[in-house]
Design a protein around this nucleic acid. Structure first.
Length: 430
DNA sequence: TCTGGGGTCCTAGGACCC
DNA sequence: TCTGGGGTCCTAGGACCC
C-alpha cells in the first residue's frame, strides 16, 4: 500500500519570528497581514486567549485590553528563507515530495515498506527542529486527505510526539468519528454548513452517507475518507495566472500615483513570470475603492489587453498595464486597492510570435536588459534597479517625494529583521 | 484613522457553429 | 397549434485551499 506524509509547520510565521526571539517562546504572539491589516498567524497562546484569525489589528487592543500581545508585521523575506530550509530537509528525508504551500509539503513514501513510518516521522520532526528551529507536525496515511487529518491529530495531542500514523481501518474509523466535518480537507465553511443542516457533524457521518450525484471534487474527498487514494498529486509546477495586488495604506485619487503602483505591480508580475520560465499573453488591471467606507462613493473596474506576442518583458508589461489603467480610471474616487493580473501563461520556450508585430531586435534587447536587472536585484536586493515608471515624480516643486509615496504603499510598523538574508541584520553575540 | 494576498478547479449558461 | 440536435468555447460565479 502506498503511504503519504504531510509535513506542516506549526503556526509557521510565528515560529519563524520566535527562532530569533527566544524570549517569546511562551508569549502570546500574532503576525499581521500586509499593511498591518489583520491577524494571519497566531501562537498557541494567542489561540487559547481567543484571538481569531482575521481579526483586524486595530481591534486587538479593545478586544483584549488585559493581554500582553507581541505583534509582528509580516516579513516574507524571512518566512521564505526559513521554509526553504525546512523544505530542503524534507526533500532529503523522503523519496518523493512536492511543496503544497509556503508551510506544507506532501511526501510520497514509496519504497519504504521496511521502514517504521511512525519512527521516521518522529525523527524527521526532531531533525527539522534541531536544524532550523521550526516545529512541524507530520501526518501519515494511505491518502492525502487522511494524512492531513492525521497531521491535525499530531499537532493537537502531545502523545503522538508530532507524528500520527493512520495505517489500519480501526485507526481510520476512530479518527473519523473524532474529526469535525468542517475540518476535513476539501470541505469548507459553506459545504460544512449545508451538511450540518442534514445532521452530519463528523467526518464519519459524511463518510458513511450514500453519496448522491454531483461534484467530482466532493466525491474524491468522500472516497478518500473511505480509504481510497484518488486526489491527484498536483504538478503545481507553473502558475496559470499571476496576480500582484495590494491595498494601500490610506487612499489614492491621483492617477499618476496610482499608475506608479500599477507599474510596480506589473514589474513584480513580470519578475515572477521570468522566475518560472513563462510568458503571458494577457495583461489585466483592476482598481477598487474601499468597500468598508460606506460613506464614500464606490467604484470597481477592471480591463485587460491581449498582447500580439506573449512576453515576459517588464517594459512591455508595464506599458500595457498603464494603458489598461487609463481605460478604467475615473477621477473623483478614492482608490484603496489595485492589482495587475497576468493571464494566458505559457512556457517561454515556445513563443508564438505575431509576424506583423514582432520586432526581433527589440525582443532581444529587452530580454538581455531584464536578465541584467534581475541579476542586479537578486544580488543587491529587490528594486535596486527599476523603470522610471515605477518611481513617482511630483509634478510641482514641493510635491511629495518618492520615498514618501512608497512609505504610503504598505504599512509594516512591527517588522522584524532579516538575519538569514541580509548581512546588515546578522545576529551579534555579546 | 485602521479590515490581506495569493491561487485552483468545477459548473451552468450563453454565444456561436454546422 | 406547430420552431432540432449536437457540439465547442468562453465567462461568471461559487466552492475550495493556504
Amino acid at each position: 500500500m502506498r503511504y503519504y506524509a504531510v509535513v506542516d509547520c506549526d503556526n509557521c510565521y510565528v515560529s519563524c519570528e520566535r527562532v530569533f526571539r527566544p524570549d517569546l517562546k511562551h508569549a502570546v504572539v500574532v503576525v499581521l497581514s500586509n499593511n498591518d491589516g489583520c491577524v494571519v498567524a497566531r501562537s498557541n497562546e494567542a489561540k487559547q486567549l481567543g484571538v481569531k484569525a482575521g481579526t483586524p489589528y486595530y481591534q486587538l487592543a479593545s478586544l483584549f485590553p488585559q493581554a500582553k500581545i507581541a505583534v509582528f508585521s509580516s516579513n516574507y523575506e524571512l518566512y521564505g528563507e526559513m521554509t526553504a530550509r525546512v523544505m530542503s530537509l524534507i526533500r532529503k528525508a523522503a523519496p518523493q515530495c512536492f511543496r503544497y504551500s509556503i508551510d506544507e509539503a506532501f511526501c510520497v513514501l514509496d519504497g519504504m515498506e521496511r521502514v517504521d513510518l511512525k519512527q521516521w516521522g518522529e525523527q524527521l520532526h526532531q531533525q527539522i527542529l534541531r536544524c532550523t528551529g521550526m516545529p512541524v507536525s507530520i501526518g501519515i496515511a494511505p491518502n492525502k486527505t487522511l494524512a492531513k487529518m492525521a497531521s491535525h491529530f499530531a499537532k493537537h495531542y502531545a502523545g503522538y510526539r508530532h507524528c500520527c500514523l493512520i495505517d489500519t481501518k480501526e485507526k481510520r474509523g476512530k479518527a473519523l468519528r473524532l474529526y469535525p466535518l468542517k475540518e476535513v480537507w476539501g470541505i469548507g465553511r459553506r459545504l460544512a454548513a449545508r451538511f450540518q443542516a442534514l445532521g452530519m457533524e463528523t467526518a464519519w457521518d459524511f463518510a458513511k452517507q450514500q453519496l448522491g450525484g454531483g461534484n467530482v471534487v466532493l466525491e474524491r474527498t468522500w472516497r478518500e475518507l473511505n480509504g481510497e487514494d484518488c486526489v491527484p498529486n498536483e504538478g503545481m509546477a507553473r502558475k496559470k495566472t499571476i496576480c500582484t495586488s495590494r491595498s494601500f495604506n490610506g487612499m489614492i485619487s491621483d492617477v499618476g500615483e496610482l499608475a506608479t503602483h500599477v507599474a510596480n505591480f506589473a514589474a513584480r508580475g513580470a519578475e515572477k513570470l521570468r522566475r518560472q520560465g513563462s510568458v503571458a499573453a494577457v495583461v489585466g488591471v483592476f482598481i477598487e475603492t474601499n468597500p468598508f467606507r460606506e460613506d464614500l462613493p464606490q467604484y470597481w473596474n477592471s480591463c485587460d489587453e491581449t498582447l500580439l506576442t506573449p512576453t515576459d518583458a517588464t517594459a512591455t508589461i508595464v506599458e500595457t498595464a498603464r494603458r489598461c489603467l487609463d481605460r478604467v480610471f475615473l477621477p473623483g474616487y478614492h482608490y484603496k486597492r489595485a492589482g495587475v493580473l497576468l493571464m494566458g501563461i505559457a512556457p517561454a520556450s515556445g513563443i508564438q510570435t505575431n509576424f506583423l508585430d514582432f520586432d526581433a531586435e527589440r525582443f532581444q534587447k529587452l530580454k538581455s536588459l531584464d536578465a541584467i536587472v534581475d541579476r542586479i536585484n537578486k544580488q543587491n536586493g529587490t528594486e535596486t534597479v527599476v523603470l522610471a515608471a515605477q518611481q513617482y515624480r511630483p509634478r510641482k516643486p514641493g510635491g511629495r517625494a518618492k520615498a514618501e509615496v512608497f512609505a504610503n504603499v504598505i504599512r509594516h510598523d512591527f517588522r522584524s529583521k532579516n538575519p538569514t538574508t541580509r548581512w546588515c541584520d546578522i545576529v551579534q553575540l555579546k
